[in-house]
Amino acid sequence: MELTITYEEAYRELEQIAQEIEHETVSVDVLAEKVKRASDLIALCQKRLKGTESEVNKIIARMEKNPES
């Protein structure tokens, strides 16, 4: 399942889910649904972070190879 939200939106939603679970405001009937959503959001955030890290490393490598750019 590909989510089309930004990293920041996903992170905020994860924070909200964590607060709901921590403060026990999540109904037992929807707990599994919330945990599944959190899992999807975590996967999205990890993917975006790894992609960003890869891009930054490529840029740094190019800069080190050609410092005049």
Rank of each mutant, 00 (worst) to 15 (best):
Y7V: 10
Y7S: 12
Y7G: 12
E8T: 15
E8M: 12
E9K: 08
E9D: 12
A10E: 05
A10L: 07
Y11A: 05
Y11M: 01
R12S: 11
R12H: 13
E13V: 04
E13N: 00
E13P: 02
E13K: 02
E13G: 05
L14T: 01
L14M: 08
L14A: 03
E15F: 03
Q16P: 04
I17P: 10
I17K: 00
I17W: 01
I17E: 06
I17R: 00
A18E: 13
A18V: 08
A18Y: 11
A18I: 05
Q19R: 15
Q19E: 14
E20Q: 14
E20V: 04
E20M: 13
E20P: 00
E20A: 01
I21P: 04
E22P: 11
E22A: 12
H23R: 14
H23D: 03
H23T: 15
H23F: 14
E24G: 11
E24F: 12
E24A: 05
T25F: 04
V26R: 09
S27P: 01
S27N: 10
S27C: 09
S27W: 07
V28E: 11
D29M: 13
D29T: 10
L31W: 02
L31N: 09
L31F: 00
L31M: 05
A32L: 12
A32G: 02
A32T: 09
A32V: 06
A32P: 04
E33F: 03
E33W: 09
K34T: 05
K34C: 03
K34H: 05
V35P: 03
K36I: 12
K36N: 14
R37A: 02
R37I: 00
R37K: 04
A38N: 02
A38Q: 07
D40V: 15
L41V: 00
I42Q: 06
I42G: 11
A43R: 13
A43C: 04
A43I: 03
L44C: 02
C45T: 06
Q46I: 03
Q46G: 06
Q46L: 05
K47A: 07
K47Y: 06
K47P: 05
R48A: 09
R48S: 13
L49G: 03
L49D: 06
K50T: 06
K50D: 10
K50L: 14
K50E: 05
G51C: 06
G51F: 02
T52S: 13
E53R: 10
E53G: 07
S54V: 01
S54K: 07
S54C: 00
E55S: 06
E55A: 15
V56Q: 08
V56M: 09
N57D: 15
N57P: 06
N57Q: 14
K58W: 10
K58P: 13
K58E: 10
K58Y: 13
I59S: 07
I59D: 06
I59L: 01
